[in-house]
Amino acid sequence: MTARAFLCRCEDVTLGEIDRAIDRGLTTIEEIKRYTGLGTGPCQGKECTGALARLLVDRGLARADALQPFTARPPAEPITLGLLAAARAPFFAARPEEDPDPKDTP
C-alpha cells in the first residue's frame, strides 16, 4: 500500500493533489473542487470541505472570515428517480389551461 493522506476519500483526492491545484494558482474552495474533483463523489463534500477550508487557512491562502464552502446543491440525500417521478403529476404538471401550445422546438 502506497502511503497517502486523503482529504476526499470519495474521489481519492490526496494532499499531494491539493498541492498541485494550489501550484496552479487555485486557492478558492470552488476552484479546488473543480480541478481536483474533491467533494464531487458520493458524499458531495460532507466529509472533506471543512478539512480543505482548514488547510487553506493554516497555509495562509485564505482568510477564515472570507471562506465559503462550495454551493450546496440539492439533493442533500440521494433520492431515486422513481420516487421523484411519482410527484410530477400531482404537484408539478401544468394544468391544460396553463400549458401553452408545446413549442415546435424543444
Partner: peptide, 16 residues
Amino acid sequence: LTALMPITAGLKVLRQ
C-alpha cells in the same frame, strides 16, 4: 426519463 428508460427508476440523483 423513467418512462423512456424504466431501469432508471432505482437510479439516484447525486446533484442538480
